[in-house]
């Protein structure tokens, strides 16, 4: 299938990052190759086969909604951010 320059830029947008001109060229080339490779699945007959999304054999079970003590407290978690003020994480303006 044909992957154009705009498609590469669009995929980067969906991925929340930007690509330099050089990256558009080389990652674009790589992506075309990879998509071409994975397209060989076309040859596999999967008629009447249901999909598998996970291989964990257990069924979901419900438990009581208990408040449990957490390993990390608020101070420890806030210490991980680059910029903090009055127990809030500071970021640049949103709009």
């Amino acid at each position: 299938m044909d992957i154009k320059r705009e498609d590469i830029i669009h995929l980067a947008e969906l991925s929340d990052f930007s690509l330099s001109e050089a990256e558009i060229t080389f990652l674009g080339g790589d992506l075309r190759g990879i998509i071409n490779y994975i397209s060989q699945l076309d040859q596999l007959n999967t008629d009447d086969i249901s999909p598998t999304y996970q291989v964990f054999e257990m069924k979901n079970v419900w438990r009581d909604d208990e408040i449990k003590e957490q390993e990390a407290n608020r101070e420890q978690l806030l210490k991980l951010t680059k910029d903090e003020k009055d127990y809030q994480i500071k970021v640049p303006k949103v709009l």
Binding site: I8, L11, A12, L14, S15, F17, L19, E23, L27, D30, L31, I34, I35, I38
Partner: peptide, 10 residues
């Protein structure tokens, strides 16, 4: 980046 982009593609 390659893997994230392929993931978002598929």
């Amino acid at each position: 980046k390659r893997r994230i982009m392929i993931g978002n593609f598929v």
